[in-house]
Design a protein around this nucleic acid. Structure first.
Lengths: 238, 238
DNA sequence: ATAATAGTGTCTTTCAGACAGTATTAC
DNA sequence: GTAATACTGTCTGAAAGACACTATTAT
């Protein structure tokens, strides 16, 4: 491994933090206040410090910039991005992208006076985020994260990470519909979701709404869904 | 993103190069000749140089250490490893692991006199590689790579990457059996593999063997298998 | 009652998996 | 012929998807 020109680089952990609110998939973005006014949006990120692993940095970014603890948050490495090789920055930065699910937006945006420093993190609909001006490379990370989340919904119990302690089958279906971007047959989804061993666990409680009250469930012990909930069942636009 | 202590690191691309020979899954390993005699085995790797992307380094490692061109080789990023944070090396090294499929062992081991420098790369059965003394972290990369390859066989046409230009359905089945570590019902596999649109394309040729000659196929245009070839069909030991 | 949502019954079709049976070669 | 491998036919059971139907609330 004789190598004439190995390069030194800074390393960051960049987070694709996804959540489902109001039936739509949202991503956490930070707004860097550019002095020139036209500040860009970017994913929450943190440099990997000495003695720290990339995981540690990801957890730190989650805490400092999103204001969420790593408790109950699914954190999974997505991919590492090394392009562009050199812009005009003195040292190269390589970015390890992470997918974070389960950091709900309830804690964020505590009001104008509560913020200690400027973690101006906002939850933006993913379509808007992709249409707007994201930092270089961050759009790719976001689409990669959405695709990964979509795949994992099929064969893992990941969808429950988007929800609170107790949830209804409809709310669970809403997660699938938001991430996959389509409609699912409520009746078939209901049967299917309950048929998977260890996916859902009845709590005995109910939630009243506009129609018949829905039973509440918590996530079960299973992490793999078999047979999978296939994306093929999506119908129509939304 | 005020960060008090961002660390500089070297970056390497480490390759998990898998192939199927003699019905068994093999991995390419390089033997570093340690002066103390007891040299360790490690995955082929290359430092990411200035102006180079991690992909470039992976391709270079594939060429220099495995002696394969990137032509026809499926190269896919696996994961980035940042532990251990600091051993006694002055600068930290973070490793981007890649999965490489399709670099057959036919070109390697050109005989003792042909090697320019010591790319003493050998193909080792994965069970042996995992049992032996791999470099720190490389065992984890190898198991991650095997798992990833196994998953991708289910829903992509990746298996054909392990084979040459023309192959029989039995040879294809052999790939699945080697990677998944089990037996598949030949009759059902045959029907299933041929039923997937765009997976296999008949060439019209045949290969004679011990029994009835088998028709030859080349890979078709499809990259996704639907419905998937499920691992659930594995039976028995081998 | 009506609307709305939750949940069940049931029918059809598709497909996986088992395995019997046929085809084509080498010996 | 036998052995061996390639391939086809057919049966069965499980599950997906469609959709009609019942259940339970708010208004």
């Amino acid at each position: 491994m004789s190598d004439p020109d190995p390069e030194l680089a800074h390393v960051t952990s960049d987070l694709v933090v996804l959540t489902v609110t109001e039936g739509a998939l949202h991503v956490a973005l930070t707004h860097r206040e550019d002095p020139e006014g036209d500040g860009a949006w970017s994913l929450p990120r943190a440099f990997v410090r000495a003695g720290e692993s990339a995981d540690d940095a990801a957890v730190r970014a989650l805490h400092d910039e999103v204001g969420a603890s790593a408790q109950g948050v699914t954190l999974e490495q997505l991919k590492t991005y090394t392009d562009p090789p050199a812009n005009h920055v003195p040292t190269r930065i390589i970015s390890i992208a992470w997918l974070a699910l389960g950091a709900g937006p309830s804690e964020v945006r505590p009001g104008p006076e509560a913020g200690t420093d400027s973690h101006e993190t906002q939850w933006v609909r993913v379509e808007e985020a992709l249409a707007g001006s994201l930092d270089v490379g961050h759009a790719e990370m976001l689409t990669d994260g959405i695709h990964r989340a979509g795949s994992k919904l099929e064969y893992t119990s990941l969808a429950t990470s988007f929800l609170g302690e107790e949830f209804t089958v409809s709310e669970l279906r809403g997660v699938y519909e938001a991430v996959w971007g389509g409609c699912l047959e409520p009746a078939n989804f209901h049967r299917k979701a309950l048929s998977v061993d260890g996916f859902l666990e009845a709590t005995g409680n109910s939630r009243i709404g506009r129609g018949r009250p829905a039973k509440l469930y918590r996530r079960g012990g299973a992490s793999v869904i078999h047979p999978p909930l296939t994306r093929a069942a999506i119908r129509g636009e939304r």
